[in-house]
Design a protein around this nucleic acid. Structure first.
Length: 155
DNA sequence: GACGACTTGTTAT
DNA sequence: ATAACAAGTCGTC
């Protein structure tokens, strides 16, 4: 059984779940139909709403389903550990995992679950890197987390 | 700042 | 199997 809900934030943030595990998040101009049944999923929705209001929410406790290659999974799991409001560069992750920055970027692009896996906290060494769903969303997410003062140079 | 070389997993041919 | 590509980075001009 699949549950889904959406949150409006300039665009709709749609979240899809199966057995309370998140398997997909996407931004779109239209909301998915709300089909929330279980209590823990309602909790996730509430957390998402608070997050987009600017609350400091940690999504680390939520289960996710990653249907991706082992390499991509290792990158995503690493990114998951980045705390709220912190920035890491592609290069740092690449060094840590013994791979190349380019490959890290590619892996992040394959992230099926933006926001919950905070790929927006990974930036290029000088500048903001890319974002599959539009760089402006990445910028908004960082603005939401008040990262500007930490690293004013990304743009 | 622009440009090229190098990188490495993914994807297409 | 091989080539092209990407959400990068480093050195040089």
């Amino acid at each position: 059984m699949i549950e889904s809900f959406s949150i409006k934030w300039k665009v709709y943030v749609n979240v899809y779940l199966s057995n309370s595990k998140v398997f997909r998040v996407c931004f779109s101009d239209r909301p998915v139909k709300d089909r929330i049944v279980s209590e823990d999923v309602k909790m996730l929705k509430r957390d998402m709403e608070l997050y987009f209001k600017g609350e400091k929410i940690d999504f680390g406790c939520y289960d996710v389903i990653l249907n991706v290659s082992d390499f991509v999974k290792s990158v995503l799991l690493y990114v998951r550990k980045i705390p709220y409001g912190e920035l890491v560069t592609y290069g740092e992750i690449a060094r840590e995992l013994g791979t190349s920055p380019r490959a890290v970027g590619k892996a992040l692009k394959l992230n099926p679950i933006p926001v919950i896996i905070p790929c927006h906290r990974v930036v290029a060494k000088n500048g903001l890197g890319g974002f599959s769903q539009g760089a402006w969303i990445k910028r908004e997410l960082l603005k939401l987390e008040n990262v500007e003062q930490n690293c004013g140079k990304y743009k």
